[in-house]
């Protein structure tokens, strides 16, 4: 084994180990991308800009669809993440668990606050409050995740989601759902693809 062969072997083995211990970015991002694309897409079709109804879906469909898809995506990515982290113990798995708890705490906190406010909020602003607030939280948590694991793709995705969320909220109800579906959901699909190509 000459020196350059040894260096090649090290490079291969480190890359191989990294792949084995990192969850497939496609499996981590694509379920969320689809959830946003479909969930916010339904919301846009039912509660369009300026109070228009583009497709006469039953009122409950968008919120029910988004919630059901989010639960499914959360369970799926949780399982994939836990599976890739299995059999490694130490600071890194603790980081992952704490990060997961931060997501749950953030969503629970926002849901409680928004639930209270929704009682007095005009109907047409409810979607904007829930959508805009939750998307802001997702953007910030992805940025934090990027900082924790030094993951450029994750940080960029979080920054992108945070930025398009502000644009969507400023454009107003209806438009926000469209922006979240296409730019947000699309951004997650792109992040899954880019992350996967980087790992290969």
């Amino acid at each position: 084994m000459d020196p350059s062969e040894a260096l090649d072997l090290i490079r291969q083995e480190r890359a191989n180990t990294g792949r084995a211990l990192t969850p497939d970015p496609r499996l981590m991002y694509w379920p969320w991308g689809l959830t946003w694309l479909i969930g916010f897409g339904l919301s846009f079709l039912r509660y369009g800009p300026d109070g228009r109804t583009l497709v006469a879906l039953p009122e409950w469909v968008p919120l029910f669809g988004l919630t059901a898809l989010m639960i499914a995506a959360g369970l799926f990515t949780g399982l994939v993440g836990a599976r890739s982290g299995r059999s490694v113990s130490g600071p890194t798995s603790r980081q992952g668990i704490w990060y997961g708890i931060a997501w749950s705490a953030g969503f629970t906190g926002l849901a409680v606050v928004f639930g209270r406010i929704s009682e007095v909020l005009p109907e047409h602003l409810m979607g904007l409050l829930w959508g805009g607030g939750m998307v802001a939280l997702v953007g910030a948590l992805y940025m934090a995740g990027g900082a924790i694991w030094n993951e450029r793709t994750m940080f960029t995705l979080g920054a992108w989601i945070s930025a398009v969320n502000v644009v969507g909220v400023l454009l107003g109800p209806g438009w926000h759902a469209l922006v979240a579906a296409l730019a947000g959901g699309g951004g997650m699909l792109a992040a899954g693809l880019i992350g996967w190509m980087r790992l290969r």
């Binding site: 180990t17 490694v88 890194t92």
Partner: peptide
């Protein structure tokens, strides 16, 4: 060398199960 290279990919303080 392969064993050490693979282990070096773990973050400091992390341990990996033998079968994995």
């Amino acid at each position: 060398l392969r064993v050490v290279a693979a282990l070096s990919q773990l973050n400091g303080g992390d341990r990996i199960a033998f079968p994995r």
